[in-house]
Write a protein that binds this DNA or RNA. Sequence first.
DNA 1: TCTATATAGTTCGTATACGAAGGAGTTTAA
DNA 2: TTAAACTCCTTCGTATACGAACTATATAGA
Lengths: 143, 143
Amino acid sequence: MAKLPDDVPDCMVFLLAKAYQKAHANFKKQLIPYGLTNLQHLVLEGLWYKQGMTAAQLGNFLILDKATLSGVLERMVKAGWVEKKPDDKDKRLLSIHTSNKADDLKKDLIKERQTANEEILKNFSIEEKILFKRFLADVISCE
Amino acid sequence: MAKLPDDVPDCMVFLLAKAYQKAHANFKKQLIPYGLTNLQHLVLEGLWYKQGMTAAQLGNFLILDKATLSGVLERMVKAGWVEKKPDDKDKRLLSIHTSNKADDLKKDLIKERQTANEEILKNFSIEEKILFKRFLADVISCE
DNA sequence: TCTATATAGTTCGTATACGAAGGAGTTTAA
DNA sequence: TTAAACTCCTTCGTATACGAACTATATAGA
């Protein structure tokens, strides 16, 4: 990953893709011991933020396509990370909950994310960290 | 894409993923009329930078896994965007070249990328643009 | 109340990603 | 020179992504 052409392309599409690619790959390695993928970890964090969200709410919260979410939830149910509870009032809804297996690892898993974030920003000053996050949030929320 | 929780997560892994997701989705729409995917466009830009690279060189240059590259090149050959030329001296090598079909669209396709980049950075000042790119390049090249 | 519309999830098809293993060709070293 | 080590590329398996079509359910409005 270290050897970019000397003039790292002056292209935001490329820079964002490769910065994400690297952060994703590093975090992926950290999660291997847990048997979790990055996306599955994200789903758990989302549910710990607000337990019992429906699949639609979760997708909205985490900016995930419903088709993508449907697949990952199926695998997470099979692996025992989450449970789907049908709603009595509205039979279309599925309320998603983390399992005990997941909750037991909550502290460790959140710690892993913090470690990953520190690793990404280890060479940045406090001011730069704040600015960087603001820039990214602006890109995401723009329009 | 606009409705993040008010406190956009203070998590770099998430911010990088979603900023990339948005940039990728926007550029994807721009490329639909050409029948090109984002990755296929990237491959063409790589070859225009240095025509005739081997698959390995191209993957190294664009930071692409060889397995990913093998698949996309196969589809691009099939669609007539690139050609593979075996090397006479080293029979393991495949020299990749853009087709006339691709070269005819070169100006337009490069313009599309520029438009996409401008869109991403439209709300940033000159100083912020430079800083943002430096931050991303630092993340990519770190270590 | 009954139909048009809208929403929640699933499923399908295609295209990345990428670890792992494999086949073919090349280099290195004893 | 020849076997071990390397390199290039392909193939396979699994997991995202996401547009599109589909089923089931709910709600709005005539």
